[in-house]
């Protein structure tokens, strides 16, 4: 059942590290923006292979910054990111990014958008289209191949973004608040589908969100970041058993609710501190 470790930065860390199957390793990451804002300070983290890790924290804790550093889209001021043991110096084919605002090409069809990553890798057109079509079907958009992004709803657009990321067969999926621009009903359905898809594809996922419930519901491991400058506060393992339960049953379980409550207590403290300042 739920494992919540109260003040465990140290022990919890070693636990995750012990698994020795971490695919992404972050050590000593500090990020200072021009102008002197310190977004992250001394962040060490390990992401176990095949698991879903969530970066959770209040606005301004640098969670998106950390994700973009892992993606190679931003350079860290200090520290290194290793993927499969190799140091990262930019974007690479073993990582794929899912954007908060979808980042779809508005002038291209769903098919072209999903195939964009493959096109950049120089995959020939026929293979590209075949692969794109199969992922379009997997995310439930069969029949929309020739539609343009502006003809789709927010939820459908993000499915395109997800299919595009899956199509390049990266080991690590980096998702930046993927559901924040999607309405609540769609979001819940989407979370289910995401879990199902990931179970099939066996991906490592790093997921940024500010929704506590979402984090607890989808993650194997939750990293709580403290605000400005972002540091790791604690790591929570929700350990939710899904077998044979409906989503609603899971959301009603005491274990689920306790974890949500526990994380909320921590985040509330930040807000109180902020108010006092």
């Amino acid at each position: 059942m739920t494992t919540v470790i109260a003040s465990p930065t140290q022990e919890e860390h070693s636990r995750v590290n012990d698994t020795a199957q971490e695919i992404v390793e972050v050590s000593g990451i500090t990020k200072v923006y021009p102008g002197g804002t310190v977004a992250l300070r001394g962040v060490d983290l390990a992401f176990p292979k095949g698991k879903m890790t969530t970066l959770l924290g209040p606005s301004g804790c640098g969670k998106t910054t950390l994700l973009k550093i892992i993606a190679g889209l931003l350079d860290a001021t200090e520290g290194v990111v290793r993927v499969n043991g190799k140091e990262v110096s930019g974007p690479g084919p073993e990582r794929a990014f899912v954007f908060q605002d979808f980042a779809l090409l508005p002038w291209a069809t769903v098919l072209t958008n999903v195939g964009f990553g493959l096109e950049m890798q120089g995959v020939d057109k026929a293979t590209r289209e075949a692969k794109s079509r199969s992922y379009i079907t997997k995310v439930g958009l069969a029949g929309f191949e020739d539609n343009y992004p502006h003809e789709l709803s927010g939820g459908m657009r993000q499915r395109v973004g997800l299919a595009r990321a899956l199509a390049v067969s990266a080991d690590v999926l980096l998702m930046d608040e993927p559901f924040s621009a999607v309405d609540e009903q769609t979001r819940r359905l989407f979370q289910e589908e995401l879990l199902r898809l990931l179970a099939m594809e066996n991906k490592t996922v790093i997921f940024v969100t500010h929704s506590i419930e979402e984090a607890v519901y989808v993650s194997d491991q939750i990293v709580l970041l403290s605000p400005r400058p972002g540091r790791i506060n604690r790591v929570v393992i929700p350990g939710i058993e899904r077998d044979g339960k409906t989503p609603d049953e899971i959301r009603r379980e005491p274990g689920f609710l306790d974890t949500v409550e526990d994380i909320w207590d921590t985040l509330k403290k930040y807000l109180d501190e902020e108010r006092m300042v």
Binding site: Y33, P34, G35, T37, A39, S59, G60, G62, T64, T65, K68, L73, L74, R228
Partner: peptide, 14 residues
């Protein structure tokens, strides 16, 4: 110090 500066990673040209 603006919070949005940190949260939305886009930094406008200095």
């Amino acid at each position: 110090m603006s919070r949005t500066l940190v949260d939305s990673v886009y930094i406008p040209p200095e």
